[in-house]
Simulated scan of single mutants.
Amino acid sequence: MRYVKYAIIALFLFSIVTYTITWYSDKNSTDSSMPEIKISEQQIEASVKDKDALLKGVVAMDEKDGDITGNLVVESISKFVNKKEHICNVTYAVADSDSHVVKATRKVRFTDYKSPRFIVKKPLCIEMGSNTSVTSLIGAKDVIDGDISNKVKILSNMVSTNVSSENVVTAQVTNSLGDTVKLKAEVAVSQSNNISPTIQLTKNIVYIKKGDKFSAKKYIDSAKDSDGKGISKDKVKIKGSSVKTNKAGCYSVKYSVMDDDGNEGNAYLTVMVEE
């Protein structure tokens, strides 16, 4: 019995020693220090196309791991903190080998930023009785987020395809930087027939700078009668235009053409005048 007692005591002491050694080893092998992000400039300028520029002048160091700049990531870009100057906050994050994470923030001014632009995928002419929605015709693209057509909202009342009409529709889209733009476009609902001539425009929406010259005729591509026979572009008339190039805003142009039998066809161009 005495030997058994000694064996139990020895096993107990061995367990304590083993636990102590393991605890001490783990304590000394685990780094309790936090990494550090160093930023050379608190505000930089960058192109929206140069994603690598956001990391320039930013390094990360860790007491145990040394230089961990390669682990740095751009965690987020905030909404504009200065919309006029196109300035955002950029947040950086880095983790060391012990999964300690630190973050830091600085400002970036995007030198070539442009607000989102709308895309008119098809002419804004809807056939009476059809299931075509205005949402399916209007999209948007952005220099930061790319295609943001899924973020387009129609703010005005939905267009009814039950009656022939001309409607002014307001669309809105907002990108991840909080920049919101609106579009007011004319949408026509008309009775489909096989005798009206058609007008093909080179674009369904155009963007021009405030003060630029604008020629509605420039965007006429072609015209055809109901049999597909070409009609001279000279016969396409500007039936109405609200475009004012001296004032930023959204405008429309209505084109009209008559075939030899007196049948009329129309087309619409949306014009965005930017600052």
Rank of each mutant, 00 (worst) to 15 (best):
G57K: 06
N204E: 09
A267E: 14
L155Y: 02
G240L: 05
S190T: 10
S97N: 07
L137F: 07
H86W: 01
S165Q: 14
D145S: 12
A10E: 04
V257C: 07
I195Q: 02
T180M: 02
E127C: 10
K237S: 07
Q200Y: 03
M1H: 15
K114S: 15
I68W: 05
G228C: 09
I208A: 06
M61C: 00
L11K: 00
E63G: 02
N204M: 11
I9K: 06
P116H: 10
E45Y: 06
V73H: 03
N71I: 03
S232A: 15
K153N: 13
F214N: 05
D67H: 12
K64N: 11
D259W: 07
K84S: 12
N193F: 05
I77E: 13
V134M: 09
F14I: 13
K141W: 10
Y24K: 14
L177W: 13
V101G: 02
K210S: 10
K122V: 12
L137Q: 14
S176N: 09
N71E: 13
Y255P: 10
V253F: 15
F214S: 03
P197I: 04
K237F: 01
T22N: 01
Q191G: 08
N28Y: 04
Q43T: 07
S78R: 13
K239T: 00
I68M: 08
S226C: 15
S190R: 09
K184C: 14
A53F: 01
K27R: 13
D234C: 09
